[in-house]
Amino acid sequence: MKILVCISNVPDTTSKINFTGDNKSFDKNGVQFVINPWDEYALTRAIELKEAKGGTVTVLNVGEADAEPNIRKALAIGADDAIRVNADPKDAFFVAQQIAAIAKQNNYDMILMGKESIDYNGSQVHNMVGEMLGIPSIVPASKLDLVDDSTARLEREIEGGKEVVEVKLPFVASAQQPMSEPRIPNMRGIMTARTKPLQVVEPVGGEVKADYVSFSKPEKKGGVKMIDAENAGELITLLRNEAKVL
């Protein structure tokens, strides 16, 4: 089983979001970067499948060298090797093109991603890659199991329920809870990660279709109006007559 896991390098969930240069770019100053939380579900599920069935897990990031600490972290968690496409990614289409190009050179049995990046919130790279490769993309998947060597069974979240889907390998899937329980790298993992192969390759194409012009932040809330707990029912009146939401 050859599994590709795509990981995005994103600001930690507690980061303060600011912009620089005339609000044209994200201010990385003082921001800690982590593996996109959804991608960790994909990574751990891939490692679990490898442990059960044998095979390899390759992690792939499209990004600059500053993503390497998190790529090493993925190796420490249990991936076997890594590829970094050396580029400053500027939109999802570009990222999808890079992933599809790597996938075409290697016969992966499955390509796992996260449901969405927590920075640009596109939720599109997985479906784009599936379409580019002409293979199914199951998005978002909360469960993934192998039925046999050529078939996987997934649960896909839909609004108001879930679907059980069986697909032939290869396919793309994006992970969300409760697909797996993310792991923390242990000492041995951290040691061996240093010597695992990390290949750096140059990007293909370069077309950007969504050009980010500028950023802004939402307006601050006007402050909270407190209601006495004794008169809690008053809240309902305010919600109807003042906020007009009931």
Binding site: P11, I17, F19, I118, D119, Y120, N121, V208, K209, A210, D211, Y212, V213, S214, F215, S216, K217, P218
Partner: peptide, 14 residues
């Protein structure tokens, strides 16, 4: 809406 609701981005669809 980007950065999980913490910001907005203006994007030109080319």
């Amino acid at each position: 809406s980007v950065f999980s609701g913490k910001a907005f981005a203006e994007v030109n669809l080319t």
